[in-house]
């Protein structure tokens, strides 16, 4: 105490705090904030890795919005979201809802549903890619053949390819959502249910009037996290389509593939940066929108 030369306890602790924070602050500035700034500034240049960065104003954005392929890509990106969210939400809630009512083998079943979450997306993308092949090698079509049902084109169809690529993404995320739903359902106080039963409410009524409203926060959480996931889909598309192009005919090409190709195959760093800014904006708007909805309801 004597060697503190008049520093108060509060000042001393503030020094400790900054001491603890100095490395992290430097880290976050170099690895998060500076790159963010750099991405924005790069998006206003025509930089192509080799050569100078020339500032060209909004040219990249103008080119982007005049490019019909970019609109297809944006459309696909939202299609992943619009198919992905309802399907995965419905499946995971239904499974969690019924799983909650089961005691026998509950842990085992839960584990089975959860396991896909632990797999590597790239690895499983190749498994699904194999499944989707036509006869004589694709498991799905072989099975359809055994059942005497018409063959499906899956990845070789402009309409089926996107859902086919989306499936493994939904499949892998389902376990996580189920676990979160189960925890949410378990955290609803029993007294709510008992009161409802005394009032003579049926199962369906309880589901709609108690369970679902009580799960609002859980649902919002799942919707936000999985929205962000679907909008950023990459691993599956890159590994399930020919040459990672997001084909056939751009039918499965999402924004992140487009960014990757622009940046690391065409070296159009400025253009790619502009696309990342678009992605950033979309994610930001969706997150804020959903948070607002949650706040209003909460």
């Amino acid at each position: 105490m004597s060697n503190n030369k008049g520093l108060t306890v509060g000042q001393k602790r503030a020094i400790w705090a900054w001491l603890f924070l100095v490395i992290p602050i430097v880290y976050f500035i170099i690895v998060r904030f500076y790159p963010t700034f750099d991405a924005f500034s790069m998006s206003f240049t025509d930089w192509n890795i080799i050569g100078e960065r020339n500032y060209i104003g909004f040219d990249n954005y103008v080119t982007l919005f005049n490019d019909p392929v970019f609109w297809v890509v944006l459309g696909n990106t939202f299609e992943y979201l619009l198919f992905g969210i309802p399907i995965s939400l419905l499946l995971s809630f239904t499974i969690a809802y019924y799983l909650d009512q089961i005691k026998f083998g509950h842990g085992l079943l839960r584990a089975c549903y959860f396991v896909p979450f632990l797999t590597t997306a790239v690895a499983m993308a190749w498994v699904w890619r194999w499944f989707y092949q036509p006869v004589p090698i694709g498991i799905f079509n072989l099975a359809l053949g055994e059942l005497g049902i018409l063959q499906m084109d899956f990845l070789r169809s402009t309409t089926q390819a996107l859902p086919a690529v989306l499936m493994p993404a939904i499949w892998a995320g389902l376990g996580f959502q189920i676990i979160i739903f189960l925890a949410g359902i378990r955290s609803i106080p029993d007294s709510y249910y008992e009161a409802a039963k005394i009032d003579g409410a049926g199962d369906r009524q309880i589901l709609w009037e108690i369970t679902l409203p009580q799960l609002r926060a859980t649902i919002t959480f799942i919707v936000i996290t999985s929205s962000i996931g679907f909008l950023r889909i990459f691993d599956q598309v890159y590994n399930m389509t020919q040459e990672g192009e997001g084909g056939p005919l751009n039918a499965t090409r999402p924004l992140v593939i487009h960014i990757y190709k622009s940046a690391f195959e065409d070296f159009e760093m400025g253009m790619a940066a502009a696309q990342t800014v678009v992605l950033f904006t979309i994610l930001m708007v969706i997150t804020l929108l959903q948070l607002k909805v949650m706040k209003k309801d909460g």
Binding site: R156, S157, T158, Q242, E243, E245, G247, P248, L249, N250, E265, D266
Partner: peptide, 20 residues
């Protein structure tokens, strides 16, 4: 001028006929 890009034009050319 762009091997990958020019190849893709042939890939798409064929797909348009075969798939659509």
């Amino acid at each position: 001028y762009s091997e990958a890009g020019q190849r893709q034009t042939v890939v798409d050319m064929l797909d348009r006929v075969v798939l659509t």
